[in-house]
Amino acid sequence: MPDSALPRPEIQFATIAQQGDTAELGIWAFLINETIFFGALIFTYFLYRNFYPHEFAVAAKDTVLWCGTLNFLILITSSLTMVLSINAAAQGERKAMILWLVITCALGFAFLLVKGYEYYLDFLHKSVPIVAYEIKPGEGNAGILFWAFYWVATGLHAIHLMAGIGLVLYMLLWRIRRGLITPAYYAPLEVVGIYWSFVDVVWLFLFPCIYLVGRS
């Protein structure tokens, strides 16, 4: 694989290194924005949880703990495989890079599969506001607020994860296939990796909020 030849930077950059740096700063700036986006939602959740601790605890007990935990493990693992792929890219081990990326992508799909099954269980359990909802004993009027948060938060997270999978596939099917990711310039893959890890971190916050708090 020809990795000695540096790609030409785009017109606005002096060197390819500057282009890579700029892309990474771009994704970090974007993640500041994303953090505040999810932060506003989690703030809303804690505000209401503070208003109705009992109702929220009752409603939260109906979430499917094993699905959430399994997904937690899947995503944590996918962050590891993502980093291994970037590491392989830096070392110039093309096969390892592709292998780890494929595993990352597969873990992403696995998450969505488990999440979809969990949604199905929620539906059976009548925990989908408006579509199929039943007020369970003890959760009162405010229980539906928990479920509104649950659907908005997991839904937005799933959309972000799908975007991540799309980016990984773009790397695999376009950039890597055309030999554009080399040890000399693998910033695009790193950008995707940073975004991927962010999506994991969001789950790191959502998981205890949804499944663990008040369960004991």
Binding site: A29, E34, I130, I144, L145, V152
Partner: peptide, 24 residues
Amino acid sequence: LTATPVLTMDTFLLAVERFVGTGL
């Protein structure tokens, strides 16, 4: 960059609320 995402989330919740009426 730091203020707009709050409005984005806020209008999203407003749209959810107006569309499905969960009581947010």
